[in-house]
Design a protein around this nucleic acid. Sequence first.
DNA 1: GATGAATGAGAATTCATTCAT
DNA 2: TATGAATGAATTCTCATTCAT
Lengths: 218, 218, 218, 218
Amino acid sequence: MTRANKNPTERKAEFITAAEELFLEKGFENTSVDDIVARVGVAKGLFYYYFSSKEALMAALADRYLDEIDALIHKAMDEEGLTALQMLNKLSPSQVVISGRSREVMKLFHHERNQAFHLMMEERAQKILVPALERIVSKGCEEGIFHTEYPHETSVAMVAMFTALKRSVMVEDDPQRWNRFLAVSRELLERLLDARPGTFSEFLMNLPPKGECPKKLN
Amino acid sequence: MTRANKNPTERKAEFITAAEELFLEKGFENTSVDDIVARVGVAKGLFYYYFSSKEALMAALADRYLDEIDALIHKAMDEEGLTALQMLNKLSPSQVVISGRSREVMKLFHHERNQAFHLMMEERAQKILVPALERIVSKGCEEGIFHTEYPHETSVAMVAMFTALKRSVMVEDDPQRWNRFLAVSRELLERLLDARPGTFSEFLMNLPPKGECPKKLN
Amino acid sequence: MTRANKNPTERKAEFITAAEELFLEKGFENTSVDDIVARVGVAKGLFYYYFSSKEALMAALADRYLDEIDALIHKAMDEEGLTALQMLNKLSPSQVVISGRSREVMKLFHHERNQAFHLMMEERAQKILVPALERIVSKGCEEGIFHTEYPHETSVAMVAMFTALKRSVMVEDDPQRWNRFLAVSRELLERLLDARPGTFSEFLMNLPPKGECPKKLN
Amino acid sequence: MTRANKNPTERKAEFITAAEELFLEKGFENTSVDDIVARVGVAKGLFYYYFSSKEALMAALADRYLDEIDALIHKAMDEEGLTALQMLNKLSPSQVVISGRSREVMKLFHHERNQAFHLMMEERAQKILVPALERIVSKGCEEGIFHTEYPHETSVAMVAMFTALKRSVMVEDDPQRWNRFLAVSRELLERLLDARPGTFSEFLMNLPPKGECPKKLN
DNA sequence: GATGAATGAGAATTCATTCAT
DNA sequence: TATGAATGAATTCTCATTCAT
C-alpha cells in the first residue's frame, strides 16, 4: 500500500538495526524473519530482496560491530610515531565493543539465548584484535617497556582476561566493582607484560568517566 | 520391531552419548530428537520415556562434564595438609575438561553451531572453578608464595586465560604449540600470581605425556 | 505447487467451512489441522498464517453461529413497540441455530465426538439467549399475558426444553414428529408461562414450511 | 517389585475409581493411561490386562453411574401398588446423579474439559430415564392427576429442564438458590403436567435436608 | 497377575524461503 | 522495489498400545 521506495542502503541498515534490537530483546535464535520485517514495517518478501538469507543479515550485523573495532585498530596503529603504550591506550576501548556496547546491552547479552551471537562476536573480534595486540606487545618489547618471549600467547591471554573480567563486572551495576575492575586490569597488565609499576595508569582512562560504568560508546 | 529391553541406566547413557556425538558433529541447535533416536536406533517415544525434554538431555550431558570437574575440585581441596601449589597442580586438568575432552572434540567444538552448548559449559564450569581457585590463591598468599590483592579477579582471569589459550592451541594439531602452551602457561601464572620463577615447573605436568597433545582424559 | 493467492477473507472462510464439515464428520477432537488443510487443499503453514492456533479456528467457527443468534436477538428486541409475544416469535428460530443448523448437521452432531463443541455452543448460546428471553418473559408478565414469579428460571427451563426436544426430534427424519414437536412446543410454552390457550399459535410458525423439517436457515 | 496379586474385581474397581478422580481433576481428554496407572500405582501393562482399551475403561465408568440410576428406576417402578406421584418422588434423586454426584463434582464437571464425558453421561442417562418417566406420566394421566397428550415429549422436556436448572444452581454454593430451585421445580412440574397446586409439595423432599445443598448421595 | 521398556503413528506449531502480482 | 499469500519440511512432544520377561 504505502510505497516509500526508500534508498536501498538505508533500507538495508533499517533491517540490520531492527535485527540488532530484536536479538537483544528476544535472543538470537528466537528472532524470526517475521519479527524483523514486522519491526521494519514491511512485507516479508522485501527481506529476501535485500538479504539472501537470515544468515546473511546476521553476518551484516556482525560486520557492523567489527567495523567499529577495525576503526579502533587503525586509529591505534596507523598514526606515525606512537609508542606501544600510546597504541595500547588507543586500542583499549575495543574491550567495550567486544563485551557489548553498553550496560543494558550487556545484561541482555548475558541472557542465555544471545550466547551464540555473543560468542560469534567474541571470536571474530579476537581474530582481528589479537594480531594487532601482538604487534603492539612486540613493539613494546623492542622499546624495552614490556618483557615477554610469548607476545602472541600473551595477547590471547590479555583479550580473554579482559573479556571475562568485563563480563563478570558488568552483569551487576556497581560503580565500586567498576573502579576495582580498572585497578585490577592495570595491575594484571603490568604483571603479564612485566612492565614498570604505574605504566598503565592511563590505560582505560579514556573510557568512561571515573567512578561510572560505561554507557554507549558512539 | 526388535525389542531389546535394555537396562535403563545403560539406555540413558546411550542417549547421552549419542547426543554428545551429534552435538559435536552437527551442533547443538541442529541436532534434533529425531537424530538422536536414529543414532541410538530406537523409537522416538523412548527418548521421552527417559528425558522429559530435549533440554533435560542437554542438562544431563552437561552434568556429565561438570561431575568430572567436581571430582577434580574435591580431589584438590579435600585432602588434608596440601599446600596451595599442590592443590593448584591437582586442579589443573580441569582446563582440559572445560575446553573439551580431546583434540577431536575441540575441532568440532569449533564448528560454529556448538557455541551455545560450549558457552553454557564454560559458564557452569567457571561458576564452580573460580571459587575453588580463589581459595587456593588466597591460601597461597597466606603461605607467602603468591602475592595479589585481588584473588577473585585473578582467578577469573586465570580461568579465562587458560581456556582461551587452550582453545587457540588445540584447534591445530601441533605438538610444538602444545609444549609452548605449557611454557607460556607457567610463565603467565608466575606473573599473575607474582610467584618465584620455577614455582610452576610441575604445573600441568601430570596432564598428557610431554610433547603430546592430550587425548581422552579417562 | 500451484499458487492461487486467494482473497484472504475467502480463504479464512474456506478454512472455517472445511473445519465445520470435518468437525461434523469426525468430531472436534478427532479433526487435526492436517485434515483441515488437506480438505482446503493447501499447505499446513497456511493454516497458521490465518489462525494462530486450532483453538482460534474453533472460536471463529463458534462466532459464526453466535452471530446468527445475535442477529436474531437484535431483530427481536430492537424494534420499537413490539409486544412480548411478537418478540418471542421473532426469537424462536434461534432454537434451530442452537440445536444445529439442519437435519444433516444434527445427525452428525449426534456422533459422539462433537459433544465438546456442541456443548460449548449450547452454553455460549444460552448465555446470550437466556437474558433476552428473561426480558421478554418479564415484559409479558407486565402485559398480563404471562404469569410467573420466576422469569429467570423459566427462561433457563425453556431454552433447555426446546434444545432437548429439538434434539430428540431431529435425529430421525420424520415429518410427523416435527409437526408434533410444534404442537408440543406451543402447549408446553402455554403451560410454563401460564398463558391463555392459543397464545402461541403462531410460535415457530415462521420457521420451516408446515410439515417439513427445517433445512438451512439462511 | 511389590507383587500384591489383588483380587481382579477390586483391581478393576481401583482403575475405575482412579479414572473417575482424574477425569474430574484434569478433564477427560487430558487424562492419559499413564496418569491412571500412576494413580493406581501399578505398571502400564496391567491396565491392558484388565481393559482392552481406554474407551473400555470409560464405558465401565459410565456404567457405574448408570447402574445407580437403574437402581433408582427399579426402586420406583418395581414396587407394587405405587401411585404415579409416589413413583415420581422415588425417581427424583436421579437428577442428582445425572447432574453430578455432589457440589464438588458439579463444579468440576462444569470445567470445560469434562464436557465430553458429562454430555455422554447425560445422553445415556436420558435414554433410560425418559422411558421410565414416560410411563409414570402416562400412569398419572390415567389416575387423573396429570393431564397431557404428549407424555413422551413432556418427559424429555422435564429431564432437560431439571438438568439445566440444576446446572445453573449448583455452580454457586448458595442455599438461597437451592430453595428457590426446589420451589421453581415444583411449580414448573405442576404446570407442565397440569397438576393441582400442591401436588408436588413433597417432590425432591427426600433429597437433601431443607435449606441445604445436596452432598454425596450414597 | 504384573512389570516397564519399547513402539510408532500422529499431534500442533514454527519458520526460512519462494513467487505471482 | 515492494507485497503478502503460500509452501513444506522440520521440530518438539504425546499417548494408546504391545510384548518380552
